[in-house]
Computed example of a mutant assay.
Amino acid sequence: MEKDLYKVGEDYVEARIIESLSDLLLSLTLWKEGYTRNSAGKAFSAVKALMSAFIVTNEDKLINLAKDDQERKWIKKKAHVVPTHDMYGLAQLLRKIGIDIVNLVNYALDLHDYQYNGFEPGFSKYSKTEQVLEDLITVVKGTKKVIELYFAKYEIKEVSEKIDELLKELEEGE
């Protein structure tokens, strides 16, 4: 008999939201210290953790959208891990149930490309640091807003306030 090693539920969702907020804070801190590619990676990770929370809290609705048994099984067993190559498709599924984070996911994927490729033409859409910062701020604000809207009960006030302070500093420095 097969047994799950962990239960994906309320505690898991809370952990993913805390992870998302922590990654947003780390992203801004790394940016201020000049680690722009690591910063982009943390912003990407924040969106990925947020998606994981959405998938777990909406699993039944997503399973109902599945086209076949194989996809239903994948959603039940693996979707909450949010493989990078499936992020856009999962965002499209979430949009079908009324959670539209497709643009946020696109920005996060662009930042992910920058994290690994820097300004390399053909591999990253960015050619200037200012462009990266603009999208980074968009992802941080967007992720934070979505958390406040859907997962407010898990939000950590001190972390959110620190994120707001760092955002203000970065925006004033532009």
Results as ranks from 00 to 15, higher is better:
R37M: 01
N106H: 05
N38L: 15
Y116V: 08
G118S: 11
L62R: 02
Y107H: 14
Y88L: 13
A40K: 09
R72C: 13
D113T: 03
K48E: 12
S124G: 03
P121D: 02
L65A: 03
D69P: 02
R37H: 05
I75P: 10
H112G: 13
A49S: 09
R72D: 13
K67N: 08
Y107Q: 10
S39K: 14
D86H: 07
I63Y: 05
N103V: 00
F119A: 06
S124I: 11
I97E: 00
H85N: 12
P121K: 14
R37G: 12
K61R: 09
T57H: 02
L104Q: 02
L62T: 07
E120W: 08
D60P: 03
K67I: 13
A66V: 10
N64V: 01
I99R: 15
I55L: 12
G98L: 06
E71A: 11
V105T: 11
I101S: 09
D86P: 06
F44M: 00
V56T: 06
K48Q: 06
K96Y: 03
K73G: 01
N58A: 04
N38D: 05
S45F: 12
A91D: 00
V82E: 06
Q92N: 15
L90G: 12
E71H: 01
R72V: 08
E71P: 14
N103W: 09
T84L: 07
D60I: 06
D110Y: 03
L62M: 14
E71F: 14
A49Q: 07
A91E: 06
L111R: 08
V56W: 05
Q115D: 05
A66T: 15
R37Y: 07
Y107T: 09
L65S: 05
Q92L: 13
A79C: 05
V102E: 15
K73D: 13
K67D: 09
D69A: 04
E59V: 04
L94N: 07
N103E: 15
R37D: 04
A53L: 15
H85Y: 10
N106C: 00
E71G: 05
H80L: 04
D60Y: 07
K78Q: 04
